[in-house]
Simulated assay, not measured.
Amino acid sequence: MDFFADIEHLLYAVSRIFLMPVLFLIVLSLLYAVGMLGAFLVEGWQRRRQGGADRLVKQTRDYLRRQTISSGDLELYILKQLEWLRVVSRTAPMLGLIATMIPMGPALLALGNGDATEVGKNMVAAFSAVILALLAASLCFFILTIRRRWLLQDLHRAERTLLLQEESA
């Protein structure tokens, strides 16, 4: 029986090691989401003032440093632009779950010992982390959805423009 208790203690100690890095990643995710929200609002304002298809072609050319580009190049550029939004929107909830579950062990132990203060302290950390992670994921998912539509509309227009340029040449 001591062997299993030792394994439980080892697992608990290892999981506690990951709490701080997970909390740090949640904070980074939230900061990234807020930064992307600002960039999203600026991009939305710019899109109201000017067309996006020409801008997509120009940005892709600048990125690839080539004069001629194909629609495949445009698609890859769009995927690159949306990559981190997608990663954060999918991983932040998992990080929130990890950050919730790690403090639950000590909270349950404290509950068994009748220490309400320790239970509260652990539960606040657990639920705060999951709330911030879900907020970051929600913001990134919202921005990802709208930006994907914008960029696909730009891609559609740019493909028509590239096709017309090829036909006239």
Rank of each mutant, 00 (worst) to 15 (best):
D62S: 08
E167K: 14
L28K: 12
G72Y: 00
L108W: 04
S70E: 02
E83F: 15
L30T: 13
A169F: 08
A126H: 08
T117R: 15
E166I: 08
V22N: 14
L30S: 15
S71N: 05
R48N: 04
L30Y: 08
P93L: 01
K58N: 01
L56P: 03
A133V: 05
I7C: 01
L23K: 14
Y32L: 01
M36H: 15
G44H: 04
M101A: 09
A129V: 06
F18N: 05
R147K: 12
L132G: 13
A107H: 06
A125R: 11
V130R: 03
K121H: 09
R90V: 14
G38C: 10
P21V: 09
R65A: 09
S89F: 13
V88T: 14
V88C: 07
M101R: 10
R86W: 04
V27Y: 09
I17N: 07
F24L: 10
L10I: 14
L19T: 05
D73T: 11
Q46R: 15
T100E: 12
I26E: 04
L97F: 14
A92R: 05
W45S: 11
Q67E: 08
M101C: 02
D2C: 13
D62C: 04
K58S: 06
I26A: 03
E159T: 15
L19H: 05
A13I: 15
K80Q: 08
L41F: 00
G105S: 14
A137T: 02
V119R: 08
R86I: 09
L164T: 14
V34C: 05
A133M: 03
I78W: 00
L109I: 15
G51Y: 10
D6H: 06
L37P: 06
